Measured scan of single mutants.
Amino acid sequence: FSITQFVRNLGLEHLMDIFEREQITLRVLVEMGHKELKEIGINAYGHREKLIKGVERLI
Results as ranks from 00 to 15, higher is better:
G41W: 05
I42E: 01
K38L: 13
F6I: 05
L26Y: 07
L26C: 09
T4S: 13
G54M: 06
L29K: 02
Q23G: 14
I42W: 02
M16Y: 06
S2P: 09
R57T: 10
E49I: 13
L51D: 00
Q5K: 10
M32P: 01
L29A: 02
Y45V: 10
R57D: 12
I3W: 06
N9T: 13
H34E: 04
A44P: 07
G46Q: 15
L12Y: 02
L29H: 04
H14M: 13
Q5I: 10
G11I: 02
T4R: 15
F19S: 02
D17N: 11
I52D: 00
G33Y: 03
E13D: 11
L58Q: 05
E36G: 06
V55H: 03
R27C: 15
E56Y: 08
R27M: 10
I18P: 01
D17E: 14
Q23K: 14
I3S: 02
L58S: 04
V7S: 03
T4C: 13
E13C: 14
I3F: 11
I52E: 01
L10T: 02
T4N: 11
K53E: 08
T4V: 13
E56T: 10
L12G: 02
F6R: 00
L15M: 05
M32F: 07
F1Y: 11
I52M: 09
F19M: 06
I52A: 01
L58F: 12
R21T: 07
I52R: 06
T4D: 11
N9Q: 13
Y45I: 10
I3D: 01
F19N: 00
L26N: 01
F1E: 09
A44G: 11
L58P: 01
L37G: 01
L10R: 01
F1A: 09
E13K: 07
F19E: 00
M32R: 02
R27K: 14
G54R: 04
L12S: 00
E36P: 03
I42M: 04
S2R: 07
N43E: 14
K50A: 14
H14R: 08
N43Q: 12
E39A: 14
I52L: 14
V28E: 12
G33M: 03
I24N: 02
H47W: 11
H34I: 03
Q23S: 12
I59L: 11
N43P: 07
V28F: 08
G11F: 04
K50F: 06
I18S: 03
L26S: 03
I24W: 04
G33N: 07
L37F: 07
A44L: 13
R57N: 14
E56R: 15
E39N: 11
L58E: 05
G46S: 15
V55M: 10
E20T: 13
I40D: 00
Q5E: 15
F1W: 11
V55C: 14
M32D: 00
F19K: 00
L51W: 02
E39T: 09
E49T: 09
V7I: 14
G41H: 03
H47G: 03
R8E: 07
L12K: 00
G33K: 09
E20G: 06
F1Q: 10
L58A: 06
F1N: 09
L12M: 08
